[in-house]
């Protein structure tokens, strides 16, 4: 199949996006056992902030990106303080519900401020695909793949080779022991949550060049980040990232390949992630890479 290399490249692109989106989610879950429903919405808000600065206000790209991410840092800090912190130590369901309401608040605010019509980051100009060896790829897509590698590498370095990373790992594994050793749980919580949101927002900005912006786009990405986490095992950071790339692969192969002459319409691409979640949950609930069982 001649299109296989293209599909693989597309998988890499999708996988990179999902990896950036889900890394933050996995870290937060590992630390707080909290599933942040609003995670995808940080992507959306990041994209819209960037849109506002770069397109509507016409500031330069790097400055817009920097400011947009700064806005996200503030929003994430506030979100954590109001919607997550007071509830994280209580019953599991509470942060679930509060982040759900946070997600809705983000969505409706953006709908009100920007209106519900679809927005584009690329109106007025075309991004030309480059072509190597029969594969088409745009500069943005190259940025996606490369920056994902760089950022993931950075995360790997921080987690495994710095004292900060050690503290995060300690707290993830054992709440009380970590704190007993003098680690400030509060600061780490904020740091991890904000970093996760910033990663997601960055991914959101990049996606903005691939698809159009809509206030409702957050949900699908939250669910895909969940899918990556479930594939890799909840709380398992590298499993999640691997899961993200697997998800990207499966998604692209599912619509790209002809199954006995019948190929899945592109509209079902998203649904594939959802079906995968279900299948994995039903047959391998601990994820493809996890050891501990999490059965009812």
């Amino acid at each position: 199949m001649e299109i296989l290399p293209q599909l693989l490249v597309n998988s890499l692109i999708s996988g990179s996006i999902y990896a950036l989106a889900s890394a933050g989610l996995a870290l937060v879950y590992g630390l707080l056992r909290v599933l942040n429903f609003a995670h995808g919405h940080f992507m959306m808000v990041g994209a819209y902030a960037f849109y506002f600065l770069a397109v509507e206000q016409a500031y330069g790209l790097p400055a817009s990106a920097a400011f947009a991410l700064l806005v996200i840092v503030l929003l994430a800090a506030l979100s954590f303080k109001i919607f997550v912190e007071p509830f994280a130590s209580l019953s599991f369901f509470l942060p679930f519900v509060t982040t759900l309401s946070l997600a809705t608040i983000f969505e409706s605010s953006v709908s009100i401020i920007f209106d519900v019509n679809v927005k584009s980051l690329t109106s007025g100009f075309e991004i030309n695909s480059l072509s190597f060896a029969g594969i088409f790829i745009t500069p943005v897509q190259i940025v996606i793949i490369l920056s994902a590698l760089v950022l993931l590498g950075l995360i790997a370095f921080i987690i495994h080779s710095t004292s900060l990373g050690r503290r995060i790992r300690a707290l993830s594994q054992d709440d009380y022991a970590g704190q007993a050793l003098g680690v400030s749980k509060k600061k780490i919580n904020y740091l991890v949550f904000i970093s996760g949101a910033v990663l997601a927002a960055y991914a959101g900005i990049l996606i903005g060049y691939e698809t159009n912006l809509q206030p409702t786009m957050g949900n699908a990405y939250t669910i895909k980040a969940f899918a990556a986490m479930i594939l890799g095992g909840l709380g398992n950071l590298w499993g999640t990232i691997a899961g993200a790339y697997v998800l990207g692969l499966v998604e692209n192969l599912s619509i790209g390949i002809d199954f006995w002459g019948y190929s899945l319409p592109a509209g079902y691409k998203d649904a594939f992630a959802f079906v995968m979640i279900l299948l994995v949950l039903l047959f391998k609930p601990r994820g493809l890479f996890n050891k501990e069982a999490r059965e009812a």
Partner: peptide
């Protein structure tokens, strides 16, 4: 049957998305 609280919620969310 298979899933505990957090997994169950995500599972139903995925099901509703399907």
């Amino acid at each position: 049957i298979k899933l505990k609280e957090d997994y169950f919620a995500i599972g139903t969310l995925a099901f509703s998305s399907v």
